[in-house]
């Protein structure tokens, strides 16, 4: 009865073969070619990283003798020497940067995640993002105007101040995100048993987020250690050890500026030290990136 409605597949104008994937149709070929190009581009993007790491391993380790960690930079053409003062200088300036940016950054992150309502938080998040996009050399110009001009001296303080501003957005953002990952129920439970806001934040929420916050701080430290532009005319560079008697108010060496200074000179002994210092900086960045990747991989409370 109903058979007149069911068409015989053989007689119908519909060709079931058209449902099969046709390997030579232009549409299939186009897809294959585009997939190939996308894959090729991905390989192309990774190649520079591999080549740079290979060169750093080759040239950096070759130049890495134990005395590079303890001795002072050598004059041109004199073999030996190291960059102990630059390692110490970088550590001092990154330390100053942390002292300024960690308390401000974490408190600002707490405000954004815990106490903020609406518009103000949106504005501050927006400005934090814009701040992280300001070129680092402009931060250098700013620190030069604020610290170097007023104290009339290039100093580790000026360098550390510039680094603090570069670290600040990273710390605010990671603290904000780390606190947001703590479930709302934890806060409700804490307030339910009678805790105040500050008790809830400091004793319950913050401890739960500490690993992620430490990760963010470490990442910002690694970034700051590799920054060169903001130190060029705030901390300058010196061949000598930091001088504590002068309260650090004098030019201070750093690893990043050492790489720059020794890369653009024609002397082979100094170029080798530049590779060794670059190797140390990249190892620092790689280690912190990998550790942070592992630490934030487990995103559960």
């Amino acid at each position: 009865m109903a058979s007149e409605f069911i068409q015989d597949p053989a007689k119908s104008s519909f060709n079931s073969a058209s449902l099969r994937r046709n390997p030579t149709s232009p549409r299939t070929l186009f897809g294959l070619i585009m997939s190939g190009i996308a894959g090729l581009f991905t390989i192309l993007a990774i190649i520079p990283l591999v080549i740079i790491l290979a060169y750093l391993l080759g040239k950096g380790i070759a130049a890495l003798r134990p005395e590079v960690f303890t001795e002072l930079p050598p004059p041109p053409m004199v073999p030996g020497g190291g960059f102990g003062n630059a390692i110490l200088g970088t550590a001092i300036m990154v330390g100053i940067g942390m002292l300024i940016s960690v308390p401000i950054g974490i408190m600002a992150g707490i405000y954004l995640s815990e106490f903020s309502t609406g518009k103000l938080a949106d504005w501050i998040r927006f400005l934090t993002n814009v701040l992280s996009g300001v070129p680092s050399i402009i931060i250098g110009v700013f620190a030069y105007g604020v610290i170097v001009l007023t104290t009339r001296s290039y100093s580790a303080w000026a360098g550390g101040f510039a680094l603090a501003i570069l670290m600040l957005p990273i710390i605010v953002r990671t603290t904000d995100e780390a606190l947001k990952l703590v479930p709302q129920e934890v806060r409700q439970a804490s307030i339910g048993v009678g805790a105040n806001d500050y008790q809830t934040v400091l004793q319950i929420v913050l401890p739960a987020a500490v690993p992620a916050i430490i990760t963010g701080v470490t990442l910002s430290v690694a970034r700051a250690a590799g920054e060169t532009a903001p130190l060029l005319f705030t901390a300058l560079f010196t061949q000598y050890w930091p001088n504590w008697n002068n309260l650090l108010f004098e030019p201070t060496a750093s690893l990043a500026v050492l790489v720059y200074n020794f890369a653009i000179v024609p002397f082979q002994n100094q170029q080798e030290l530049a590779w060794a210092a670059a190797f140390i900086l990249v190892v620092l960045v790689l280690l912190t990136s990998i550790i942070s990747r592992i630490a934030t991989a487990r995103r559960t409370y």
């Binding site: 991905t42 993007a45 990774i46 520079p48 990283l49 080549i51 740079i52 060169y55 750093l56 040239k59 690694a222 970034r223 250690a225 590799g226 920054e227 060169t228 532009a229 990043a256 790489v259 720059y260 890369a263 653009i264 170029q271 530049a274 590779w275 670059a278 900086l281 990249v282 960045v285 790689l286 990136s289 990747r293």
Partner: peptide, 24 residues
Amino acid sequence: IIVFLVELLAAVPSVVYGLWGIFV
């Protein structure tokens, strides 16, 4: 892993790129 490697490109300090550019 590949996403991570691409992100690492952004983490290499710019002075290291400069050094590599000059000599390689």
